[in-house]
């Protein structure tokens, strides 16, 4: 048997074991939901895996990662299934059955989507406001020595303070929870980006700076046509981290006093001891983070095509 097929065999043996456990194993736990949603989820995961395998082969790169990852996922689901639905060894309330978690996706998808949309709105507004403001002010502060001399020490003090630290205070201070969340994210993105932008402008390749000076640009030309494109790759490469930390800060802020949003959904489910919903919410947050960083990677490739 060729290596390629053998590689596909092991994951599918685990898949069969999982499906068998879900469909045929005697259930030892009461209150387990119908398996339909779980199997639908398994099909989605399997399809994602097969797409990854096909894309891998098209590129000619034979990475073992998808195979290992899928085995990991199947084993995890299998153990989860055995530990809960089949044997009922786990705590019946604290550890929900996979059937129940996946049923949540099916029953609550509208609520989940609504909460995602709500969180994304705050995230994107805060993130882009912080990013644009930081790059803009950072460019000017980097270029004008007087501005830099006074703002650099301030940024150095502010940047290392995690925005989550003052988020409870901001939630109390701001008129609405929404505005508080936006400000938390904005501040969390602003200071590090502002500081990074100044550093990038100051640390500009001396020969590029000299070349630019020889062309006698006005300050405006210098900032918009030389400095801005120069700092973009560095700024963009930090985007993924700042995007993820923004989401983190938002979810954290949502744990206190929010009425919508992903963080609120998880917090609220835990309050009502609905752990199936809580786990489902956590999984959704993971999926959203993954999607976001995938988008950021695509944007990066577009923006720095000259490198």
């Amino acid at each position: 048997m060729p290596v390629r097929c053998r590689r596909l065999l092991i994951p599918h043996l685990f898949l069969i074991a999982l499906v068998a456990a879900v469909l045929f194993a005697p259930k030892g736990r009461p209150g387990v939901e119908h398996w339909g949603a779980l199997l639908a989820g398994v099909v989605v995961i399997e399809l994602l895996f097969l797409t990854a395998v096909i894309r891998n082969r098209r590129r000619g790169a034979e990475s073992t990662a998808p195979y290992d990852l899928i085995v990991f996922v199947w084993v995890l689901l299998l153990l989860w299934e055995l530990y809960t639905s089949v044997s009922n060894l786990a705590h019946p309330v604290l550890v929900p059955a996979p059937e129940n978690v996946f049923a949540t996706f099916h029953e609550q998808w509208r609520t989940l989507l609504l909460n995602i949309a709500y969180s994304m709105q705050l995230l994107l507004v805060g993130f882009f406001a912080g990013l644009i403001l930081a790059v803009l002010l950072g460019l000017y502060a980097g270029w004008y020595p007087r501005l830099r001399a006074f703002s650099y020490p301030i940024a150095n003090v502010m940047a290392p303070i995690p925005a989550v630290v003052f988020s409870p205070y901001l939630v109390a201070l701001m008129p609405t929870f929404r505005s508080a969340s936006v400000v938390v994210i904005l501040l969390g993105v602003f200071w590090p980006t502002f500081l990074g932008t100044i550093n990038r402008v100051v640390g500009m390749e001396p020969q590029i700076l000299d070349s630019a000076r020889m062309l006698r640009p006005t300050n405006r030309t210098m900032i918009w046509r030389i400095l801005l494109p120069y700092i973009i790759p560095g700024t963009v490469s930090g985007l993924k981290v700042s995007m993820t930390t923004s989401l983190l800060m938002l979810n954290f802020a949502e744990l206190m006093g929010a009425t919508h949003g992903m963080g609120f959904y998880v917090q609220n489910s835990i309050t009502y001891a609905n752990y199936a919903h809580a786990v489902a919410g956590i999984i959704v947050i993971g999926v959203v983070v993954t999607l976001l960083s995938w988008i950021v990677t695509k944007v990066q490739k577009k923006l720095i095509r000259w490198q």
Binding site: E205, I208, S211
Partner: peptide
Amino acid sequence: GPGTDRSIVFQSYTLFPWM
């Protein structure tokens, strides 16, 4: 200071890499 009556070519990085 620099003037438009002079132009310069360095050993490297005379061009802007983003253009």
